[in-house]
């Protein structure tokens, strides 16, 4: 199989999994006995939203820190 087609399949599976987990989340929240420790856990799909923004925030904040301050040439300490 070509690389492209493989990738396409992979992403198909990925999106299907995300959709399934979202549906399952909604199901658990509204149709079973659900106990939320914090307010935000009552938002449907909170983990997915938090995951996405958390991921982007980690990359952008770290990169900015590194670019402006922390990253130096490899021979910096020599």
């Amino acid at each position: 199989m070509g690389r492209r087609i493989k990738q396409k399949y992979l992403f198909g599976i990925l999106y299907a999994c995300i959709a399934m987990s979202l549906i399952a989340g909604v199901h658990v929240q509204f149709f079973t006995h659900f106990h939320a420790d914090f307010v935000w856990q009552e938002i449907p799909g909170f983990s997915a939203i938090y995951g996405f923004f958390g991921c982007v925030a980690i990359i952008i904040i770290s990169k900015a820190l590194g670019h402006h301050w922390l990253q130096k040439e490899e021979d910096y300490y020599d």
């Binding site: 987990s21 989340g25 658990v28 997915a48 996405f52």
Partner: peptide, 15 residues
């Protein structure tokens, strides 16, 4: 299980 799955699957998308 569902919370963790959502968190990690979406991270893949972000990545």
């Amino acid at each position: 299980v569902i919370g963790m799955s959502q968190l990690l699957l979406i991270t893949f998308v972000g990545f």
